[in-house]
């Protein structure tokens, strides 16, 4: 018995070692990304790949024991390139959508889709209660800037009937009007808001006036790692790696490198939501 067991262990060891050796030599994950999407996937002035997507890709690669090979790909050809086997996975801030799920698989989200309200600093409008739920009455009569057709406007229509929506064709004019006082609040992707506005002189007098709002039925599931259909084994390993990274706080650590707030899912919700 003992002998058999140790044999098995030795075999397992051998297999494991063998796997490791194989991974070091043979398993290279080719990752598709734009390489120009600051601060998610971009090149530093020194030519190093960096960004939240890159950190996630590196973290996953480390856990599953693979080498990374970056393939820079224009956005509109990203999915076709994956399907044509130009690379193995997409880690490019790609949102998980029904449409895309017809053609490919996604990991669990490694970044959440959220919205946050921006408003002037220091005005205690009491827009949200302690539990982070909106207080509709306190939105009455407020003008809120939203991007045309964005999920945020659907959310406001559903939750805040007393607010007046002012619809913009882009984030920049909306934030300009917020700065000029044409709208009382604006709701948008907090990452964009931070990069384009709050971190700039124009946004100095403004701050987030809401907690992150992440209702999936409005805002979607989030951003995941894309793989070709039929790669269930790879997908499983990637999900496993993401689980580890969510639980041990590495995702949060990565996100705080780029933003003063977390953009990662803050607890493990299991696989299968998508």
């Amino acid at each position: 018995m003992m002998k058999f067991k140790s044999l098995l262990a030795a075999a397992a060891m051998a297999l494991g070692v063998c796997g490791l050796v194989q991974g070091a030599q043979a398993e290279t994950l080719r990752v598709g990304m734009e390489c120009t999407y600051f601060p998610f996937n971009y090149r530093t002035p020194e030519g190093e790949m960096a960004g939240y997507d890159v950190d996630v890709a590196k973290g996953v690669a480390k856990i599953i024991g693979a080498d990374l090979d970056y393939v820079c790909q224009k956005w509109d050809g990203m999915v076709p390139a994956l399907l044509a086997n130009k690379f193995d996975i997409i880690v490019a801030s790609m949102s998980i959508t029904e449409e895309r799920l017809k053609k490919m698989d996604f990991s669990v989200p490694y970044r959440v889709s959220i919205g946050r309200f921006l408003g002037p600093k220091g005005k205690d409008l009491k827009l949200f209660d302690e539990a982070g739920k909106p207080v509709p009455a306190n939105f009455d009569g407020l003008r809120i800037g939203v991007e045309r057709g964005s999920t945020y406007s659907s959310w406001i229509n559903a939750k805040l009937p007393g607010a007046t929506l002012q619809v913009y064709d882009g984030n920049e004019p909306m934030l300009l009007d917020l700065a000029n006082g044409r709208v009382d609040l604006a709701i948008t992707n907090p990452m964009k808001a931070y990069l384009d506005f709050l971190s700039k002189p124009d946004g100095a007098g403004f701050e987030f006036v809401s907690p992150p709002i992440d209702e999936k039925e409005f805002f979607g599931i989030g951003v995941g790692i894309g793989v070709r259909k039929g790669q269930d084994e790879l997908l499983k390993r990637i999900n496993g790696a993401l689980e580890t990274m969510i639980k041990d706080g590495s995702l949060k650590e990565y996100s705080l490198k780029y933003f003063p707030f977390a953009i990662n899912p803050d607890n493990w919700q299991g696989v299968g939501t998508n």
Partner: peptide, 18 residues
Amino acid sequence: STVTLMDVTGVARTLVSQ
């Protein structure tokens, strides 16, 4: 419609985006 008004075109563009 380019400066947030919901005129005929503004409404149409919003519908299109949805």
